[in-house]
């Protein structure tokens, strides 16, 4: 079985240092559980993805591509040549636009089946079984035939630890340069430091004054909640209060829902 892990030059979300995106590290772990995998990176240099060698890959193919060019043509050409059974990618890049469109563009270009948000892969070259995250631990188990491109979800198993010695031994091979290419469409008009916006609070009035929204926020939940306090209630009363509260939050189904 031929496995290719797509690697991108990520940036650490806090320090901004060049790193391998975490989801790609998780993809390497999934790939390692299935067999030998090769990394594929298109970009100006392979320094940031070199880290992948310490995480379980032994070989990375690097397509030299000037900054700002669309990597999809170069990647799809190389993937067509490699004809892998399984291509793994992170669901989003890290440190760039983080739009996660490249895997879809590759799947479209190569007419590959794309299964998104995968947390585990098992099986062999014939039929692969992919566990797809539906959030909160729920899964969709998808069996597929033929070559497939899967994007990896953060709920997949945590990446293996980086081993400096392995990274030292692994190889980055230059597999040709795409001198010409298409520019990535640059439609961004403005970029400025991120400003954190308050999350909407469920159950708060959509309009309303700031004071009312604040009240709704602090009355309903949030870390600064000034909660209700019952001192030494009757255990039965406490139980009723708890169940009522849990239902109000919505984590507990109502009593009428059962047995219908």
């Amino acid at each position: 079985m031929t496995i290719v892990v797509l690697l991108s030059a990520g940036r650490h979300p806090v320090s901004g240092a060049p790193v391998l995106p975490r989801m790609e590290a998780q993809a390497i772990r999934i790939a390692a559980s299935l067999g030998e995998a090769v990394g594929l990176h298109a970009g100006p240099d392979a320094e940031a993805v070199r880290e992948a060698l310490g995480l379980g890959l032994t070989r990375i193919e690097h397509i030299a591509l000037p900054e700002g060019l669309d990597p999809v043509p170069a990647l799809s050409a190389r993937l067509a040549a490699l004809a892998p059974d399984l291509v793994l990618a992170g669901r989003r890049s890290q440190g760039g636009a983080e739009s996660g469109v490249v895997p879809y563009a590759l799947a479209e270009a190569l007419d590959l089946l794309l299964i998104p948000d995968v947390v585990a892969v098992s099986g062999g070259a014939d039929t692969l079984t992919l566990d797809q995250s539906l959030g909160r631990g729920a899964l969709r188990r998808v069996s597929v035939r033929g070559p497939v491109l899967a994007t990896v979800h953060p709920d997949a198993a945590a990446p293996h630890a980086y081993a400096f010695g392995k990274a030292r031994r692994g190889a980055v091979e230059l597999v040709g340069a795409a001198a010409t290419g298409v520019d990535v469409p640059q439609a961004i008009v403005e970029e400025r430091p991120y400003r954190r916006r308050p999350k909407l609070v469920k159950g708060a009035p959509t309009g309303g004054s700031a004071a009312e929204r604040l009240k709704a926020a602090t009355g309903e939940g949030g870390s600064a909640a000034k909660g209700r306090l019952l001192v030494e209630p009757d255990p039965e009363e406490a139980a009723r209060e708890i169940l009522a509260h849990l239902r109000q939050i919505g984590v507990l189904a109502g009593p009428t829902k059962s047995n219908s």
Binding site: P13, G16, G96, E98, A187, V189, E190, E191, P193
Partner: peptide, 15 residues
Amino acid sequence: GLVRPAKGRRVEQRI
């Protein structure tokens, strides 16, 4: 305009 976070929430992009 639409605004989205980018680069690990270090910048925001408006379009």
